[in-house]
Every structure is written in C-alpha cells, then in structure tokens.
C-alpha cells in the first residue's frame, strides 16, 4: 500500500516571486524613513548614569559632544571652543519656528570636570537651545 502511494506524481508548485521586488522596495522606503545616519561614530565617551533618563522623543536640531579628551564636537565635526557651539546652534535655530525644534543633543564624558562641560551647556542655552543630555538608565 505504501509503495503505491509513493508512486503518485508530485505537482511542481511555482513560488510566486513577482511581488518580491515590490516588497523589497517597500522595506527600503521603510528603512530610509526610519533611519538616522549617525554622525558620531567612534566617539570616546562614557555616558553618565541616572534612573531619571527617558527615551528621547524629540527631533534634534544639532548634536554636541565632548569626548574623554575634552574635545568638543558639533554634529560630528571638531570645534575649538564653546563659542563655536553657540554660533552653530544659533545659526541652526534661525530657521526654526516651533518650540519642539529647539532640542539639542548633548553628550559628554562622565568623568569630565565642570570647567570643561559647563561653558558648552551655557552656550547651548544662550543660543536658545533646549538641552537633551544623553545618559544611560540605571536598572
């Protein structure tokens, strides 16, 4: 009985691949819309910890970072001083209209002393930016 069953011919079922290209392009569009190209790769920064940090929900107008060597970065490019940050943020905010468009990301190494980071914080505030200080959540 079993043998007779195995003799049955199997139908070749073609896999529908006509829509594969459409699906793929749909996925590309999804990633293009959702992705943010990172400008801060290879930054030597140890983030501070706090239990009060939350996921950032604002779109950012600029990204400021200070690495462990106290080098200041504006959107991934090194700058000389806090004054450059102020001018940069001021220039960015000239085009903005809404309150929600004033958020500036601030990333700083946890070990740096006040005299290094506070002038930058003040520069962002002077330029009219709302500081989004990046940290890690304490579990």
């Amino acid at each position: 009985m079993k043998r007779s069953r195995s003799k049955k011919k199997r139908r070749a079922v073609p896999v529908p691949i006509a829509s594969m290209g459409d699906i793929a392009f749909l996925l590309i569009i999804f990633f293009m819309v959702c992705s943010e190209v990172t400008k801060e790769k290879n930054l030597n920064v140890t983030l501070p910890m706090s239990e009060n940090v939350e996921k950032n929900k604002y779109s950012l107008v600029a990204r400021i970072a200070i690495d462990a060597d106290a080098q200041i970065f504006f959107d991934g490019r090194p700058v000389d001083s806090a004054k450059d940050v102020e001018w940069g943020v001021r220039a960015m905010l000239e085009k903005t209209v809404l309150e929600d468009q004033r958020h500036v990301q601030f990333k700083c190494d946890a070990a740096l002393p006040k005299e290094t980071f506070e002038p930058v914080l003040k520069a962002i505030a002077e330029a009219g930016g709302i500081i989004e200080a990046v940290g890690e959540k304490v579990e």
């Binding site: 996921k55 950032n56 962002i124 505030a125 500081i131 990046v134 959540k137």
Partner: peptide
C-alpha cells in the same frame, strides 16, 4: 538614545 530634557 535616552536623555533628560533641561531648558536652562
């Protein structure tokens, strides 16, 4: 990223 918001 996880942040805190401070409007100084």
């Amino acid at each position: 990223v996880k942040t805190i918001t401070a409007d100084l």
